[in-house]
Computed example of a mutant assay.
Amino acid sequence: MRRTLFLLIFGLAGLGVLVSLGVWQVQRLAWKQGVLAEIESRISAAPVALPMQVAEDADKYLPVTVSGDMQPGEIHVLVSVKQVGAGYRIIQPFRTDDRTILVDRGFVPVTAKDTPRQTGQMEIYGNLHWPDEIDRYTPEPDLDANIWFARDVPNLAAALESEPVLLIARSPTDPGVTPLPVDTAGIPNDHLQYAITWFGLALVWAAMTGYFLWRSRASSESDEQ
């Protein structure tokens, strides 16, 4: 009887923990979906003029339109695009009014790395962004080959002598450059998979608890005989 009671209590406690973890992940899923919906709404809002004072916390994903001159000089950031392969993001300084910002013009294949691109007067529509692409495994830029491995906005700005403000273009700026606009595809949302995992483990736990209870009862009946 004590053995059966112990198995029952242990089984119910474990089942409760696993189910609660699954419910928590479902709640996190709802929260994350709300966050992504808010980001999508902000990304797709009507564009405004570039603010005089730009703050990362307040202006991340802000849609803006700027007019000015694309300056010569560019940085190539190594990237891979699904169903296309490896290539580079083209980052260039853009002069608008009396200030210079960075513009991520988009993607070119490896073979077009050093192809001349349009500069001069143009109008660009896009979103302000401060990508979080750097960790301890990110290599240092290969300055001799002009190949960077992340969009490190402060260092890019220092290299191109601009403000640490990056505009990700949504509108084309050159026939040979494909815009890679800001979206939420790169923001992880794995809470549904986690919830399924926890609920699956809870189901297995319940089945194993039932099995051990049955074995314990069968063993007790056998001992009594």
Rank of each mutant, 00 (worst) to 15 (best):
F212S: 05
A207S: 13
V19K: 05
L21V: 13
F199W: 06
T173G: 12
V153A: 00
P164W: 02
V204N: 06
P93Q: 04
G85A: 14
P139N: 08
T184K: 12
E38L: 09
V165D: 01
P188T: 02
T197I: 08
V64E: 09
G186P: 10
L180Q: 14
Q27T: 13
P51H: 02
Q121E: 15
M70P: 06
G73L: 00
L201F: 14
T209L: 01
V81G: 00
T209H: 08
G16D: 05
V79I: 15
E140K: 15
D190W: 04
A159Q: 15
L213K: 03
V108R: 02
I101C: 05
H76K: 05
V110I: 15
D57H: 12
V26W: 10
V26A: 15
A58N: 07
G14D: 05
A13D: 07
V54H: 04
F212Y: 14
R105K: 08
P47K: 01
N127K: 06
L18N: 01
I147P: 10
L50W: 09
A159Y: 12
T115R: 14
K60P: 07
Y137V: 09
I101M: 00
P179A: 06
V66N: 03
R136C: 00
F10W: 12
E161D: 15
D69T: 10
L21T: 14
P139R: 14
W130Y: 12
A206V: 03
W31S: 14
I75D: 02
F10N: 07
I75S: 01
G186R: 07
A185F: 03
G22R: 04
I196D: 07
R28C: 06
L128T: 03
L21N: 11
W130R: 06
R136S: 15
L78I: 03
E161P: 05
D97T: 10
I91R: 03
I91F: 09
Y88E: 00
R136Q: 12
I147H: 14
T173N: 09
N155T: 10
P188G: 00
G176K: 09
A37C: 03
T4Q: 15
D183I: 07
